[in-house]
Structures are given as structure tokens and as C-alpha cells.
């Protein structure tokens, strides 16, 4: 998984590179547009274009029938059931391309999510960093946090034996792309912590053997199997996303932008959807 993650992350780092230091809406706009158009191609390649066209025409025809025979109740019912049937046909025809679209869309959303869900810390802000130990055998009092210069421990940690968890509050004193390390005996685990005012991926959590966390946080390697830590998380601030003066959730912006692109180019590329 880590290899696939770093491959996809590498591609998206290049895609987002020009938008790192400008209003995040531009990165969103371009990536959503590209996604919309690429989805069209995939749709075209994986769907039965003729079948879709036929199904759509069928429905159109039935709608026409409704308008013509609107005074004849029995005919109306008949036509309506026909509409339903051709609708099902249409849905069936769209099922296959949809399945093909599902996986790439998920990867795109994850990549956008790590950039737009949270933002890196700003100088002067604090973040809570937590480490969950594997099982109850790890003595939390012996876990040591090592911070590079530019980051400072803001207060003594809170150790929660019952959750096998230890949390620190870290103050960002200087901008930087940091690596903090956690030591226990002769073991060590590392986790990134980003303090910068630009659009870069942030990794909210890394896990030892939790595939969900690893999929959702593709920009950083997961924790190695033998480690004393099973999960390390950083509570980054949520990114307040604004698109041209409107504060909207980034998912909404993505939908709108990519749908606009897809339908804008639909005729141009000759795709039946």
C-alpha cells in the first residue's frame, strides 16, 4: 500500500505544485476540472454508448407519449411504467462505467482531502500529538518525544494508561517541514509535522496495521510492523475553504467544479452520459 500511496502522492504533488502558494481555490478548480474531463473519457471507454443513447431515447419517447395522451388515464399509467422500465435499463447501462469510476474518484478525493481537510500549523499555533502504544505492555512513562529545533513542547504530556495513549501539546516556533521522533527503549518511530503557510498535504495520522488510516493518509509511510506504536496522530487545524468569497466545504466545491467541467466538455468530446 505504501508504494502505491507514494506513487499517487508523487503525481499529485506535481499537479498541485503550481498552486502551493496561491489561493487554494485555484488548485481545487484545476484539479476538479481535470478530474471531470478524465472521468468523461473513462465513462466513454467503459460504457455501452449506443445502449445509453437508446435508453435515453426510449425515456424521451415515453415522456412525449405522456404529453400526447395526458387525458387517457390508462394509457398514462402504461407509459409511466414504461418510463420506469427504461429508467432501469439506463441505470443498468450506467452501472459498469460507474464501477470503473469509483476507484479513481476515491483516490482523487483522498489526495484533495489531505490538502483541503486540514491545513499545516502556523507559527505560534499548537497541535496535540498523540501516540497510541501497541497493547498494554508499553510503559508510557518511558516513551520519549524528541523534537527538532523550531518545535517546542508546550506542557508536560498527559499519559492515559487505560487507552495506552500519551499526548503532547507542541508549539510551532518556526516554519518548517519537521520530523518528530518517539523513542521507547531502543526503538524509534518518526512522524512528520508541517508548519508552513501553503497548500501542502498534511498527514493527520499514521498507523501500524490499520489499512483504513493508511489509505486515508497516503503522503506518509505507515508505522513498521514491529513498532511499539500502533497509531500516531496530529490534530491539525481545519482548513477554512473559501471559493470566490463563499465558504463551502471542499467536497461541495469539488463536485460543482468537476460536474461543470464534465458537462461542459460532454458535447465537445461526444460522450453520452
Amino acid at each position: 500500500m505504501d508504494i502505491l500511496n507514494s506513487l499517487i502522492s508523487g503525481i499529485f504533488n506535481i499537479v498541485f505544485q503550481p498552486f502551493k502558494n496561491i489561493d487554494p481555490v485555484w488548485g481545487m478548480l484545476v484539479v476538479s476540472f481535470l478530474t471531470g474531463i478524465i472521468m468523461l473519457f473513462i465513462f466513454k471507454a467503459t460504457s455501452d454508448q449506443k445502449g445509453i443513447k437508446r435508453a435515453k431515447n426510449l425515456v424521451k419517447g415515453h415522456f412525449l407519449a405522456i404529453r400526447l395522451y395526458k387525458d387517457d388515464i390508462s394509457l398514462m399509467f402504461n407509459t409511466m411504467s414504461n418510463i420506469l422500465a427504461s429508467n432501469f435499463l439506463y441505470m443498468k447501462k450506467s452501472m459498469r462505467p460507474m464501477l470503473f469510476l469509483l476507484v479513481p474518484v476515491a483516490f482523487v478525493l483522498i489526495q484533495i482531502g489531505v490538502r483541503y481537510e486540514f491545513r499545516p500549523l502556523n507559527v505560534g499555533e499548537t497541535a496535540v500529538v498523540s501516540l497510541q502504544a501497541e497493547g498494554g505492555n508499553v510503559r508510557l512513562s518511558e516513551v520519549i518525544l524528541d523534537l527538532p529545533q523550531g518545535l517546542k513542547l508546550d506542557m508536560p504530556p498527559v499519559r492515559i494508561d487505560r487507552l495506552h495513549e500519551i499526548s503532547w501539546r507542541i508549539l510551532a516556533e518556526k516554519a518548517g517541514d519537521y520530523e518528530i521522533s518517539f523513542k521507547y527503549g531502543n526503538q524509534a518511530v518518526k512522524k512528520s509535522l508541517v508548519v508552513v503557510e501553503s497548500l501542502v498535504p498534511v498527514t493527520a495520522a499514521i498507523a501500524r496495521d490499520d489499512i483504513g488510516t493508511t489509505i486515508m493518509n497516503p503522503s506518509e509511510s505507515s508505522i513498521s510492523d514491529a513498532s511499539f506504536a500502533s497509531l500516531i496522530s496530529v490534530v491539525y487545524p481545519e482548513r477554512e475553504f473559501e471559493a470566490f468569497g463563499f465558504s463551502v466545504h471542499w467536497l461541495v466545491a469539488f463536485f460543482v467544479f468537476s460536474l461543470v467541467a464534465a458537462f461542459g466538455f460532454k458535447g465537445f468530446l461526444g460522450v453520452e452520459v
Binding site: 472521468m39 450506467s94 460507474m98 469510476l101 469509483l102 474518484v105 476515491a106 478525493l109 482531502g113 463536485f255
Partner: peptide, 15 residues
């Protein structure tokens, strides 16, 4: 996330 992807594909296909 999976729900969102599905919704996206549905929107793309039917809207």
C-alpha cells in the same frame, strides 16, 4: 468517502 464517491458518480451519470 465511499459514499461520496458513489454520489459523485451518480451525479455525473444522471444529473
Amino acid at each position: 468517502l465511499p459514499g461520496t464517491c458513489l454520489l459523485f458518480c451518480l451525479l455525473l451519470t444522471f444529473s
